[in-house]
């Protein structure tokens, strides 16, 4: 998400192309857990895709594989035209700096850094000098309504504020993909609405978002809802609202 008002040209091809991805985990009983079983998913630039499914169906594993935090056993993952599979750990770290912004259910902020420093750190990793990184951080915090808390510790923020900070951090390097894993899972209803609206706004401004959620209200803001079960995408769901106008997923 650019803060300088310039429009960026959309590169050719999809933002994300996942094909035939399999991922298993070994357990203590030597029976592997197959988290992903040949999953396919394509996301175009500017889409807001919500992925829903029962607990343990592999949603978080999917996000980790896309981000390069875990390596798929089989299949390919391409983000922004770059093949993620088969890369070294350091290469994946560089890849994440350029293409990935992650938001987690439990924020995963660094309490020892200030609010501003939490956002500046990834900007510095992305190649900005310290002052430029801090300026970028202030801009993002301003956009997300946290400018007045720049010098505070994340531990003194409310849940909704922490999640906004996490989103600001995720946007520090204008990522190709914004990945969010249950971003409203630890928030109350007011906080959830606030975050859900924030994601919709970011998408309207052009940010490509893949969001894992159980929250139908959050999923309702997506342009597409994919349902996952047993490690594969089983279909997309159009967001609907009930008689009271509350968004529900099918």
């Amino acid at each position: 998400m650019s803060t300088d008002g310039k429009t960026q040209a959309t590169p050719p091809g999809p933002a994300l192309a996942v094909a035939g991805v399999r991922k298993s985990y070994d357990t203590d009983r030597d029976i592997p857990v197959r988290a992903l079983r040949g999953l396919d998913l394509t996301v175009q630039y500017g889409e807001f895709v919500a992925v829903s499914g029962a607990s343990g169906c592999g949603k978080s594993t999917l996000l980790n594989v896309i981000a390069g935090l875990e390596i798929a056993d089989e299949g390919t993952v391409r983000v922004g035209g770059e093949d993620v599979t088969g890369r070294s750990e350091d290469a994946l770290a560089h890849f994440r700096r350029r293409h990935i912004g992650m938001v987690f259910q439990f924020y995963n902020l660094l309490d020892e850094l200030t609010v501003e420093q939490n956002v500046a750190l990834p900007a510095m990793l992305g190649g900005r000098k310290r002052k430029a990184a801090e300026a970028r951080a202030r801009d993002l915090l301003g956009l997300l309504g946290l400018a007045d808390r720049a010098g505070a510790s994340p531990s003194v923020l409310s849940g909704g504020q922490r999640q906004r900070l996490a989103i600001a951090r995720a946007l520090a390097n204008d990522p190709t993909l914004l990945l969010a894993d249950e971003p409203t899972g630890a928030l109350d209803s007011e906080g959830s609405s606030e975050i859900a609206e924030l994601f919709r706004r970011l998408n309207r401004d052009g940010q490509t978002i893949i969001l894992v959620t159980h929250d139908a209200h959050v999923a309702a803001g997506a342009t597409r809802v994919e349902r996952m079960a047993d490690g594969v995408i089983v279909g997309d769901l159009a967001p609907v609202t009930d008689a009271n106008g509350v968004a529900t997923a099918q």
Partner: peptide, 27 residues
């Protein structure tokens, strides 16, 4: 309810140095 954490000065130019020092001294 909330653990008050002392937060020291600005980040340095090295992410790993700054982060390493703050992860230790800020706890």
């Amino acid at each position: 309810a909330v653990a008050a954490v002392r937060v020291p000065g600005p980040l340095g130019s090295s992410p790993s140095r700054s982060t390493g020092i703050r992860l230790t001294t800020g706890r």
